[in-house]
Design a protein around this nucleic acid. Structure first.
Lengths: 246, 246
DNA sequence: AGTATCATACTGTCGGACAGTGGAACCAGT
DNA sequence: ACTGGTTCCACTGTCCGACAGTATGATACT
């Protein structure tokens, strides 16, 4: 019953191949960076045609367990965070999750990220964050760029926390939530400036290595975002039209 | 630069096919439940061979955007939470995340889940949770079963919160963390009983619809887990050997 | 009408083939 | 001997054609 142990009927050859290689990776027989044999050879090893083998490979590729730096080289790899985030965002968008759902989670993740960043971020990273913030301020008016930089700002903080689990968990969520910016700003003119201010305060707290203050301002930042959504009457609205993710 | 808008070089035919169908789904031209034409017809539509088309389909399948209820029927679907969780867990296991990383996040997610459950769970769900808890108590000694039920208990609470975003975010994490149970119990004999007790208290709070108390006990529950890991000296140990996920 | 049978169409897999190309071996020049 | 360029080969992406097994819908039967 456990979601991780379901040796369900995987009778199809291409699934068996994907499963077998996956098992070898998880078992450690194949380590990230290892190069796999050519398709013909692999096909022989598994006793199938190249066509069948390729279908299996496509699946592994899509799972992020192998990838091709160049068409000629097929190597084992650990799933990339960005790839996982995209998949997750897409899933949530298709589920038509609401601003409420996103906010409820983000109001926990971002403050945690800020707290961890205060503890583990390097001076250099804080400096870079300052630069990013300056760019964000300078981008006033350009909505697309603002959203992009805003997302980067938050992600950068999360990275500073040295917690990859948090990184994986929050990225797809933040990705969706911050896109909602566009829908909120028109309803709350002052909103934009308050966001900038909050960023400044988080930045300041990080510089002082004040975890509590960083956490507090991050929380206020998100709560403010949520209030903006409420003002705009978007609480239970779909956060993002899936088509925006194309 | 945005992770969602990368029309990178997708020159390969099978990638274009996957991309095109994916776009149609995100755009809403294809809705979950819709049935797709046969492979031959699709291949003609895209002007490629069936072999090539199939490679594209395998990718979509693996992404969870389409699936085959029966080999004959190929239909559009929204990615299943369980599938995403498995992928995520696997990625984290391969990244060799530590107990520390998992705990830091879980100590936020589970209390939030408990709080939301107190607010939105139905009486019926609380009853079912009681049954599950009873089974958990009865399973004393059977480690594998205990872990399985424990994970179910937490997941059930998360579902009661009616927040799909939280569900997606916490599932893969909880999946990994609770498996660590095995490594902790030997070091902390009393640990097991305290976990049961905590569950009881959360359950009681839910029954009283006391969100604060539910949240508090959930937090204590996780913090206790974390202390157990510390007692066992596992703070920075790999939470789960990837091979356990095969 | 409900059930059983049959025919058809479609999937999973196979085998072979070919153009384009990236890498490696090989050769030449200094 | 080492570097730089050329050639050749292996390998990928794609195509074509084929076949067994089977699920699905159509047909026939009770």
């Amino acid at each position: 019953m456990s979601p991780t142990s379901k040796p369900a009927q995987v009778h199809y050859a291409y699934q068996q191949i994907a499963g077998e290689i996956e098992a070898q990776i998880l078992r450690g027989d194949l380590k990230p960076g290892d190069q796999l044999p050519g398709e013909t050879e692999l096909a022989n090893m598994f006793g199938v045609t190249r066509s069948t083998l390729r279908e299996g490979l496509r699946q592994l590729e899509s799972d992020g367990l192998v990838h091709r730096p160049t068409p000629r080289r097929l190597e084992v790899t650990v799933p990339q965070a960005g790839q996982m985030a995209t998949r997750s965002s897409r899933a949530m968008a298709l589920m038509r999750v609401t601003f409420r759902e996103l906010s409820q989670v983000t109001v926990m993740t971002e403050p945690l990220a800020a707290r961890l960043a205060a503890a583990h971020g390097t001076d250099d990273e804080i400096e870079q964050l300052q630069v990013l913030h300056a760019a964000l301020v300078a981008a006033e008016g350009d909505m697309a760029r603002t959203i992009d930089l805003d997302e980067q700002f938050h992600t950068r903080i999360a990275e500073m926390g040295r917690n990859r689990v948090l990184g994986l968990a929050r990225e797809p969520i933040a990705l969706l939530l911050f896109r909602g910016f566009t829908q909120i700003v028109p309803f709350a003119p002052k909103f934009y400036n308050r966001q900038i201010e909050a960023h400044s305060n988080v930045l300041g707290a990080l510089r002082d290595r004040d975890a509590d203050r960083a956490e507090k301002w991050a929380r206020m930042h998100i709560e403010d975002f949520w209030r903006g959504a409420q003002l705009a009457g978007l609480e239970d609205e779909i956060a993002l039209n899936p088509r925006a993710l194309s």
